[in-house]
Design a protein around this nucleic acid. Sequence first.
DNA 1: CACTCCACTTGTATAATACAAGTATATACT
DNA 2: AGTATATACTTGTATTATACAAGTGGAGTG
Lengths: 144, 144
Amino acid sequence: MEKRSIETIELEMAVLVRRLTSLTTYKKIGNLDRAAYLLLHQIAFNNGTAGVKVISDEFQLDISTVSRQAAALENKGYITRIPDPEDGRAYLLQITELGGEILDENRQVRQEIMGKLLMNWSDEEGDSFGELLRKFNATFLEED
Amino acid sequence: MEKRSIETIELEMAVLVRRLTSLTTYKKIGNLDRAAYLLLHQIAFNNGTAGVKVISDEFQLDISTVSRQAAALENKGYITRIPDPEDGRAYLLQITELGGEILDENRQVRQEIMGKLLMNWSDEEGDSFGELLRKFNATFLEED
DNA sequence: CACTCCACTTGTATAATACAAGTATATACT
DNA sequence: AGTATATACTTGTATTATACAAGTGGAGTG
């Protein structure tokens, strides 16, 4: 990897966080803020098999933060917490039917926004960008 | 742009913000948090020609937020505010020698971290990723 | 010269987060 | 078996980045 690429990526990443944050924080897109959206997505992803701890690890968030976010989602009826049959301390988080609908709805809205931003990109650029982002995110995970 | 690419990009972006935020928020890398780092960079970038307003536009941040961040940088001696000779209401933000050193130092630390993350990437992937990120960030700017 | 507009600062509220303390269960060691 | 330690979770509190609102003083326009 060339030094110049690292320089570019480093700076553009910093800018990107700023921009994405202003796009998604302090504004709910659809009904879900970014944290809630991601959490709901992740719960759907490991459907019914993960508790607060697992998810806080995946997101590198403090467990207390996830606990609160999960409580918020539960209050809205988007998830249910069932006691883990194999561990009396833990809960398993499951998405409800309503939660699934809300997730789909929000996903769609976000994809529309993203689609508009990427309106003029070619198929190859989009494909390549998606794959590189996926790879970058995967890289993060290996690192702790 | 294919639908599948948009789906991937949308989701990976959401994850990316989470990961980058946890990497750079609530933790200073070097001596600067992300907001301060970006602000200092931007002040260096339009050296001496931009005030709080211009920068808040560039970052899509409220002017009050930038005002406070600039005050913090000034307190640390990283920038100076000189009255705009052409507009009695405005200031021009200039990076100090110390500020320049700090910026370089921080940039280096950040690049090292990024370099480690990208350790196993090929030159082509890195180059391509950098360019796509740059393009994506530029796309944002056109949109308001 | 009066009125509106704008750059900036300061006060206040909110939201996402971390850290710390507390509870209840699980696990390990003797 | 009993005790000590570790773990999953919740709740309390502090911090930080942000937005919005109000205020000040200079700019621009009729």
